[in-house]
């Protein structure tokens, strides 16, 4: 496929397969956002690989007109890591759900981040196992009632962002399935970031966990319960954008500008690039109750990238030793000649 094409439309990333997610599933919107983000980035479909594990969201590669690999449960990060190391020129997406990525695949998830391999991890979080028809997941809230927890869970959930920072991740962004424009924005930012990126998508499972994010996504309250963070901009939110996030000792507080003496100057400016994850962690833990849930790019910090460092090390060692073949290398070792 000799392709001189340098600009692309969302349609160029759509495969010919009919999409088989349930009607009303949040995955449809996320897929559309991904098509649009890839078109906006201008990465050719044949320079893109989409690698998934198992679960509803992991069907996504079939709907991308790129290289795609629907692998096994929990292992997408490991497969994607090998792929990126072999072909660092390719743009690599990993698609996982909260079960695939954080339960069975938890080890690969944290090590991909620690290693800082340049893959983009799209984490669909619907707080439920959908494909196995409704068991609680590692992100389900304590007390959550499901088929496998009929009396409510007696364990605490992961907050994905906390895992990301704990694993020394350098990029974390969040969006909500229905927020198409925010989704496109953070997906683009994830690809532009060099190193492992995590995008958490709050996604609604219309069949087994319908409305799980309603507290946040409900149209009536969404403006007051979410904040769109943008690097370099004031942390403002609310329907009238008159509320803001201010420092409160070592914590954060939501205030209304003009009330209780708070002014626009008190409102914090978002810095996604500061190496310390201290404030990023606090921002990511806001849950829509006392403080609005944060969407947008929360952390975007430059750091050495595994695949770059590997290529550099190989080039350096090859240059120094200058062997052209195995035979040449073997002959340079400890040998003797017969005959």
């Amino acid at each position: 496929m000799k392709d001189e094409k340098t600009t692309f439309s969302a349609a160029d990333y759509k495969s010919d397969q009919s999409v088989r997610w349930c009607p009303g599933c949040g995955d449809h919107a996320i897929l559309n956002s991904l098509h649009k983000a890839m078109a906006a980035l201008g990465v050719a479909p044949e320079k893109t690989a989409v690698i998934s594990g198992i679960g509803c969201s992991s069907r996504l590669p079939y709907y991308m007109n790129t290289y795609g690999f629907h692998t096994i449960h929990g292992r997408a990060a490991a497969v994607a890591t090998g792929y990126k190391i072999a072909r660092p020129d390719m743009t690599v997406w990993q698609i996982s759900g909260d079960g695939d990525g954080l339960a069975i695949g938890g080890n690969h998830f944290i090590h991909a981040l620690r290693r800082n391999i340049d893959i983009n991890i799209l984490l669909f979080n619907n707080k439920i196992y959908g494909l196995t028809k409704g068991q609680y997941s590692p992100t389900s809230d304590r007390g959550f009632v499901s088929k496998s927890s009929p009396y409510g869970t007696v364990e605490d959930p992961f907050v994905p962002a906390e895992l990301v920072f704990g694993a020394r991740g350098h990029f974390f962004a969040r969006s909500i399935d229905v927020e198409l424009e925010t989704s496109r924005e953070v997906l683009e930012a994830a690809v532009r970031h060099r190193g492992a990126s995590v995008v958490e998508m709050l996604q609604n499972c219309v069949i087994f966990n319908n409305g799980i994010h309603n507290f946040i996504t409900d149209r009536e309250h969404r403006a007051d319960r979410t904040i769109h963070l943008r690097h370099g901009e004031k942390m403002l939110f609310g329907a009238d954008m008159n509320r803001g996030i201010v420092a409160d000792g070592f914590g954060l507080k939501a205030v209304t500008i003009g009330e209780d003496g708070w002014t626009i100057d008190d409102v914090l400016v978002h810095d996604a690039t500061t190496p310390s994850s201290f404030l990023h962690h606090q921002l990511a833990m806001m849950d829509g109750h006392d403080l609005p849930l944060a969407v947008g790019v929360i952390r975007d910090v430059e750091s050495p990238v595994y695949n770059d460092a590997l290529e550099e090390q190989i080039a350096e060692v090859r240059g120094r030793k200058n062997f052209k073949s195995l035979r040449e290398m073997a002959l340079a070792g400890d040998t003797w000649t017969v005959g």
């Binding site: 497969v79 090998g82 190391i85 072909r87 690969h108």
Partner: peptide, 22 residues
């Protein structure tokens, strides 16, 4: 390219990814 992965499963899975990549 010899990569020490985080576990045995990641060892084989990274190899499968590399194989898909050629």
């Amino acid at each position: 390219k010899a990569v020490q992965m985080e576990d045995e499963i990641a060892g084989v899975c990274s190899a499968i990814g590399a194989s898909f990549a050629g």
